[in-house]
Design a protein around this nucleic acid. Sequence first.
RNA 1: CGGGGCGUAGCGUAGUGGCUAGCGCGCCUGCUUUGGGAGCAGGAGACCGGGAGUUCGAAUCUCCCCGCCCCGACCA
Length: 576
Amino acid sequence: MLKMSTLLLRTLRDDPADAEVASHKLLVRAGYVRRVAAGIYAWLPLGYITLRNIERIVREEMDAAGFQEVHFPALLPKDPYEKTNRWEEYGSDLFRLQDRKGNDYLLGPTHEEMFTLMVKGEYSSYKDLPLSIYQIQTKYRDETRPRSGIIRGREFVMKDSYSFDLDDDGLALSYEKHRNAYIKTFDRLHMKYNIVSAVSGAMGGSRSEEFLAPCGTGEDTYVLCEKCGYAANVEAMVTKVAPFSGDTPAAMEVFDSPNTPTIDSLVELLNATFGGGFKASDTLKNVLLMADDEAISVLVPGDREVDLKRLQANLHGVEELRLFDDGDFAKRPGLVKGYVGPQDAAKLGLRLFADPRVQIGSHWVTGANAKDKHVRFVTHGRDFEVERFIEAAEVRAGDLCPECATPVVIDRAIEIGHIFQLGRKYAEALDLTVLDKDGKPRVVTMGSYGIGVSRAVAAVAEQTHDEIGLCWPREIAPADIHIVATGKDDQPFDVALQLATDLENSGMRIMLDDRRDASPGVKFKDSELIGIPFIVVVGKALADGKIELRVRKSGEKAEIALDGAVAHILKTVTAE
RNA sequence: CGGGGCGUAGCGUAGUGGCUAGCGCGCCUGCUUUGGGAGCAGGAGACCGGGAGUUCGAAUCUCCCCGCCCCGACCA
């Protein structure tokens, strides 16, 4: 039983000055967490109970799925991370340190290497697979900018699992088992979430999905089709267009276009010269970029911008991507800023990519690769060819769902889980093989799966709070019932304690506000701020043999007879 | 890393060259009060983020450093 007279808890009336998002403000005000340094938080009793409740739910669901829990240190030697090249690759996000002898160590940002080595050390036969193991561990990442309280910290608690299989079919099955376990977990956490296709990136894996909890303060943007439920990370959104069906136009025709280096000015000129009806989407924008050391051109309709993040996610293997600057133009005199067209790309040594909207057979108004000249009827397939189509154009609300062609919406969310078919990258780097039926060594294929446990505390707070405070689902809350005693005599306090004891003996987790000096108003405000789902008030109504039962979320209040109260409360609480 | 902002008691803040740094919350003592963040009286708590400088005089001006927040870049 938590007794507020002795609980290490001090609620604050004012929002902390350094907090911006609701979960951060409320978790600090309600006495759940305190900041220790940027992105590093201490958990007070209420917060730590809450964190452990979420941890427990996650653990129970992982165990139920047949995954085995292990535990690694956070403090790790450099060597395994050198072998996979992540000592370097992770860059300055990695917390590095040295021991007294000058040997290098790191604080684990994620543990693929260690899990791979553990399996390598213990197993060597295909008969031992499949295997899924997990841990709940504190991770360290020296984020350049921690933000939003405990949503993005430099130290955080994460559940990470790894699956090991002999072949792709096995991996697909392990992935599916994790996916199902995650669905059960997040359902039990009472979270609203979408499972969103993500780009698997340069890691080589084939399938990757994120569990995103929709929330205005979230930092991830994703696309959602409200009709069919299709959801995708903006990077992974697929553009679907009907095949081009118009006639092939006449040959390319160059025309004068002085002082029209922008799409807007070009549209204006077109309407003045060739009659009305031209739109930005009839023109072709040639976006020039440097991909590592290579010049590329990406073709998008004139009304779209190139989304660099999307482009990079779909340009596999490119480390650095940036728009052309004046120096790049200066080095390539054939490219005239504002007047670039794809028809001479081969001659100019440009690699060409096109947005799927720039279909084969479609024709465009674009630059003539000469100052003050544009050209029309430039036809894809006749006048230029691209290396391949690429998803690079910005995604907008109203773009069509690739599954059912309904306009999609764009929403923000917090990433609470990520499941990922890793493939053989780590197994290869660390030489994790098992002998197959034929006695031949085979490299194991892996999946990796994460849930942000401490982040989930904040995410649930974000999704469930209201104007007056936190509002937890029962299984997560620091207690099931918050009993408040008010009055100056001993009686309500004695009754409240007895009630608390009886309810506790019936399996309820109780927080009892037995403070003798705090006024009723203070106690009520605190109970609302702290957000335990049921509040029982023992006070004024006691004169009539009654107590009050409140539901935090709905604000419902009901007076019930003290006689038989335990049974009544149990019924209400467990009916939720 | 670029841009913006902020560091004054546990928390929220006022003070922008001049006396002993002010207020609210919280905390301690006493009395009163007890159904919506009570009242009165008394009290403790601050090397004003750190250092150097300018000045008769610095929380206040200048420079350097440190820390923190926000936007962007970055982010399994």
